[in-house]
Write a protein that binds this DNA or RNA. Structure first.
Lengths: 212, 212, 212, 212
DNA sequence: TATGAATGAGGTTTCATTCAT
DNA sequence: CATGAATGAAACCTCATTCAT
């Protein structure tokens, strides 16, 4: 279960998010609880994970969890929210630094893959796999964050279409990409034969979006 | 929840599978149980569906379920197995009838989308979404069926690469496609603005595999 | 599970009981059901044996059992009643043939051990081990049979005391003997190193009741 | 259901076992659970006792039982283990204090009868009556304890034979005694006409082991 | 803040029994 | 007589949650 180490840049970004109160300090009790929960939810599913499992993982007793979260579902919501916020911050800063559409596309793909594969938090995959475990209210809350995130993708894909990089409608292409990227969590492994960098290249290639 | 009506051809194919004992007659008690279970598992997840829910849906009492299946998990396994077998039969017959690689590719995409969107059974999406709810033994059993199914895809994609339709490695391309197709269950709706036929076209377009 | 074969005499006695309607013909469907039930009740206990177990053993389906018996408990009652009646008949005929008290005592011990160890029916042990599984009404019914049976023992033991074979009160001695004999079902095996005849001798020896 | 009060000596011995961690403090929640379970198992049998029965007896809800024991069977196992350990401790201390074989024999009989009749715990009878309700693994565990216990008996009986108190083989005599003693639970009652002390005398008399 | 015993609703599963065929 | 699908009550057990300490 070796997680790729976040780079210095990423740590700095994370520290900033923490200081803004958007993300919980991963060293705090609450932060360790979130990390452990995300890990377990990914392995066994939300419904398949008990609060006792989580408590055991973090070294406390199950009752103590409810000092940090009002109920189990709120843990999932927090994991999801932080996963989006972390990823979003990185995507926005990446897009801001780049100019060409293919480069931006590539950066977005990279950020999303990094999020999916657990660089700075493993919670991103849960957004799709455990979506239905959220109550309607929580879904609405998270959806707002997701929309900011999806908006960024759409903008870049719209540019791509306008500039002739693809013929597929942005909203369709985004759906295809989302599915293809999410699925990587089922077969791609960091530290495997294929590097993350290579994977990003192949995805850009398959999408017809290759930097000249 | 209006399901698209299976065409006459599809009904004939299904009847054949039933007569071969590969698939349960959907009119039989067991068949209705499977259909109801698949529906509920898709809506609320395997863990989120109780056997009482299933029994209520099919109009029997919860205890009666266990005349047909030894336990809840075996229902999921049966749903998955039948979903694969049904789809596989249709894919094999489609590929056998067609000659060119793009036409075959298109046929496979169409079959898989039909399976995902519940034409002749709703169970196909569960293969990914509820995979981890299967015990290790059941996973191994289903995996054997899945491999026959994935093999067919790989063959066609290998032809596509050899014939210059794509530059992406077949196994990668298949992963991307699987993800993109599976994700359609979250946003595409039969009877919506976009027809299934159009969706197939757009996917072929995005994959660079367009029949001349 | 080789059962000792009943001797010719025993078979004749059994046939007589059958013809009197006191015992079910072991070759009849009902008789095979009783034999199978007794076997299973002994192995797994009454509560631990399901009617499906019994049906499977006898090669029918569970529902069919209720053509022969109104409910599960009535099977146990029948097994017990027949076990007592069979044993009682043999004891009475043995006592009638013998004159001296030690010989009679020995015959009773022998009959009881034969009953316990499944010569002509395995049901005898159930009388103690599964007694509490009987409803109050059934217990009362069986108790009447048991009393005839216990009466025979007490008579002989009373003679033994009167004739100076033992100093222990008949009712106490009978309790001790019953326990010791019942316990043999947990350790003594026909066809083992110790023969049944030897076992009878040792018990008479331990009870101080040795024929000169 | 009036239980004989344990004497001061017995209470001291029990306290020692508790402090050694071999036996659960009968005043603790777990201890009360064990006592109630033993009582009910004896009355209605293991299979005939529900966890709700036990919970009701001790004044908690059924779910709460599973904080103390992982499942119902483990309660039975614990009851049995503690019954053996308690009895064993008393037997060992009694044998250590006495010198002659008949005196030792008498002490063992007394200890076993006290255990059977619920002085300091009612669980002893369950060892035989509910033995088969234990899983194979649990049986093996308990068997180890039982062997220490039976070993003590065999030693004393071997001395008895060597010293001419009896002609019966120790292993046979022990089987007879075990059965006779166990059976007392079906007919002998503390506070009845016959005192426990008298019962012990009669048993020694019947076994030919009477102190001069 | 942490503990751990207790809650209580609800889960899956078992099983004796019924009854139309 | 036998079948086998269905019943329905009740079994064991799980688990998120509470709360006195």
């Amino acid at each position: 279960m070796s997680q790729a180490q976040p780079s210095q840049t990423q740590q700095a970004e994370l520290a900033q998010l923490v200081s803004q109160g958007l993300v919980t300090d991963p060293a705090s009790p609450k932060g360790r609880l979130l990390a452990a929960s995300a890990q377990l939810f990914k392995q066994k599913g939300f419904a398949g994970t008990t609060v006792r499992d989580i408590a055991a993982e973090v070294g406390i007793l199950s009752g103590s969890i409810f000092h940090h979260f009002p109920n189990k579902e709120s843990i999932l919501k927090a994991v999801m929210a932080e996963a989006i916020l972390t990823c979003l911050a990185r995507m926005e800063s990446a897009v801001a630094k780049l100019e060409t559409t293919p480069a931006r596309f590539r950066a977005l793909v990279r950020c999303e893959l990094e999020a999916i594969h657990g660089i700075s938090g493993v919670g991103f995959t849960l957004l799709t796999s455990e979506w239905r475990c959220l109550s309607a209210d929580s879904q609405a809350e998270i959806l707002k964050l997701r929309q900011r995130y999806e908006g960024l993708h759409r903008e870049v894909l719209a540019d791509a279409k306008a500039q002739g990089w693809t013929q597929v409608e942005p909203f369709l292409l985004r759906h295809f990409m989302r599915g293809a990227l999410a699925e990587t969590s089922n077969w791609f492994h960091l530290n495997g034969d294929l590097s993350l960098e290579d994977l990003v290249d192949q995805i850009c290639l398959a999408a017809g979006m290759r930097p000249s």
